[in-house]
């Protein structure tokens, strides 16, 4: 074909990231294959929703009387209450104002739930899932990311938030929360010092950061929640899910109040979700994993826009 004009910059960009997009496609194929082999159902829930889960620091973009979802969590839990026991979803989520090397307002989330499991079971599950998919897409389990080699085969480290804060910042996480410096210490002292040569689970969050997770049965001060770190980057958030109606109501009430105090847009309560909670959700664990960041790491990309075809936001 005879070209009249110089190749537009956007097309050069796409040419440069073509191999990442091909990798992404192949990765998602094996990811779905893994879930289906494990007996999971793929179920899509709405992207445009009425009632986002209230959170202190996450905001849903408003659109024409609705909101774009920040996570599919509340709908997924309604599915669990209806009797679905193993199911997953891969799709877009949105978080207002979040853009940077590791953030894009629109991003792709993998979220899955399994009844009868707890957060520790999901450590094993995510390990098996990543080993299965990485072996088939990268052909090996030692992955170079920047200056480090992440070994997905050997030992995956589990470190509690308390251990990590004491070790790297010499402060208890509860004290850091009181001083309103939890996030600063986490990002400036803890995260940079987490091992980068193997996957790391940062586990057992202080109970005030439980979000939608269950308080640990053997230690009332912490929640059954972990975040997976690969190469120092946070990849996935996992809970033994809170199933107690009253406690859930209480946490949402507090979150709604905090949003009001901070002049953040208010959300209508999700009555269907609470009806489902009241009826009863079986014991289950769930995990949300940022697909774009995972692809970034596996393709040794330093910015999220290198693994997304177009970033409008």
């Amino acid at each position: 074909m005879q070209r009249e004009s110089k190749k537009p910059e956007d097309l050069m960009r796409l040419e440069n990231i073509a191999s990442n997009l091909k990798f992404r496609s192949s990765f998602l194929f094996y990811l779905r294959k893994f879930f289906i082999k494990k007996g999971f159902l793929e179920i899509d829930t709405p992207v445009l929703i009425r009632s986002p889960a209230p959170e202190d620091y996450i905001n849903a973009p408003p659109v024409g009387g609705f909101f774009l979802r920040t996570s599919p969590e509340l709908h997924m839990k309604r599915l669990a209450a209806a009797g679905f026991s193993k199911f997953f979803q891969l799709g877009p989520c949105f978080r207002e104002g979040e853009r940077g090397k590791l953030h894009n307002v629109e991003f792709t989330m993998l979220e899955w739930y399994e009844a009868g499991r707890n957060y520790e079971d999901l450590m094993e599950f995510v390990k098996e899932m990543l080993q299965y998919t990485i072996k088939r897409t990268c052909g090996k389990l030692k992955i170079t990311y920047g200056k480090n080699i992440i070994d997905f085969e050997g030992c995956w480290e589990v470190i509690t938030v308390k251990e990590a804060f004491l070790k790297h910042a010499g402060i208890l996480p509860e004290t850091a929360i009181q001083n309103n410096e939890f996030e600063i210490i986490l990002t400036e002292k803890v995260e940079p010092n987490l091992p980068r040569n193997r996957p790391v689970f940062l586990s057992d969050y202080p109970v005030s950061l439980a979000a939608l997770s269950k308080v640990k049965s053997t230690n009332q001060n912490v929640a059954e929640r972990w975040e997976l770190y690969l190469g120092g980057i946070e990849i996935a958030n996992t809970y033994s899910e809170l199933t107690a109606y009253n406690e859930q109501k209480k946490r949402f009430r507090k979150a709604h109040k905090n949003r009001k105090l901070n002049n953040l847009p208010e959300y209508p309560e999700d009555n269907d979700f609470f009806e489902a909670m009241k009826y009863g959700i079986p014991e289950l664990a769930g995990s949300a994993l940022g697909i774009d960041r995972l692809i970034m790491i596996l393709t040794d990309s330093s910015e999220i826009n290198e693994v997304i075809s177009f970033t409008e936001t």
Binding site: Y57, E98, G100, F182, E183, I184, T187, L209, E234
Partner: peptide
């Protein structure tokens, strides 16, 4: 300038 946001915490 760098945007950074740990977990469900406040943006930095």
């Amino acid at each position: 300038f760098e945007f950074c946001k740990p977990g469900k915490g406040t943006a930095l």
